[in-house]
């Protein structure tokens, strides 16, 4: 059973710790352009994201959502433009304080616990106690010794998120982590993400699920054809979208 008081105590400590240390946020994209195969996938994005909230990135397929977070995470290099983290250029120290969860989780061919231990070892924090603490937060204690690849889809994604959070990142990028999962798994994952947000982790989350964006999103960044066409608070975006593209998207019309 999860000891709530311990977890809450740790959460408060984590927030205090995060406030005390220098955050890598805000992140600023200035005039960001990314081209591949002769196509412009990101077309001049200026964006500033600050600490302590959930930013949902929405938009039709091909809008450039995944490319944008890969650029912010440093997995792709922009064709032109700059990404500045906490006033400084991107470097390995910045990358180490971020984590990303991919749409299809990439799990090592090892046990569930060994997947967590691998991430902890990277930060020199591998102890059995910390490992079981992370597994408990993800609700995977019973599966600790199971091969990670035999988990269900929802459990795989929970493990991937727990592994990403194990290193206590400042920013967590999520690329449609709950796509094609059952409602119970979606709920479990949203709870883990909400707890991380409460601990002060900045969440940057791509989703197509408007219900999920309403539940979790503090703000929505709506992309279309590689541009930010709208950015607004969660509630106002859904109640009164300002752009015609967002209106069509929310109305279920095909946005090209």
């Amino acid at each position: 059973m999860l000891d709530t008081s311990t977890v809450l105590g740790e959460a408060a400590e984590a927030v205090a710790f995060r406030e005390a240390k220098d955050s890598i946020l805000p992140v600023e994209a200035r005039g960001l352009i990314f081209e591949a195969g002769g196509k412009r996938l990101i077309d001049g994005i200026d964006l500033r994201l600050t600490t302590g909230s959930v930013t949902m990135i929405m938009g039709p397929n091909g809008a450039g959502k995944s490319v944008l977070i890969r650029l912010l995470h440093g997995l792709l290099q922009p064709t032109s433009g700059k990404i500045i983290w906490g006033g400084k250029a991107f470097d390995q120290t910045v990358r180490k304080r971020q984590a990303m969860v991919f749409q299809t989780p990439v799990l090592l061919r090892r046990s569930v616990a060994a997947n967590i231990a691998f991430a902890l070892r990277l930060n020199g924090a591998a102890s059995p106690e910390r490992c079981s603490q992370v597994l408990e937060l993800a609700g995977l204690t019973r599966q600790a010794d199971q091969p990670a690849r035999l988990l269900s889809g929802g459990e795989c994604q929970r493990l991937a998120i727990a592994r990403a959070l194990a290193t206590e990142p400042d920013v967590l990028f999520l690329d449609e982590p709950t796509v094609s999962l059952d409602p119970a798994s979606v709920l479990a994952i949203e709870e883990i993400i909400a707890r991380a947000r409460d601990r002060g982790v900045k969440i940057i989350f791509i989703t197509h699920d408007t219900g999920q964006a309403r539940r979790l999103g503090d703000e929505i960044v709506f992309l279309h054809r590689g541009k930010v066409v709208e950015r607004s608070r969660g509630g106002s975006f859904f109640d009164a979208p300002a752009s015609s593209e967002a209106r069509d998207y929310l109305a279920g019309r095909i946005v090209l």
Binding site: L75, A99, M100, F102, V106, L108, A119, L122, T167
Partner: peptide, 18 residues
């Protein structure tokens, strides 16, 4: 594994071992 390892900043010797 490559993208995940880059995301996690896994050093080359550790990636090779893994």
């Amino acid at each position: 594994y490559a993208e995940q390892f880059r995301s996690m900043c896994v050093p080359v010797p550790m990636a090779m071992g893994a």
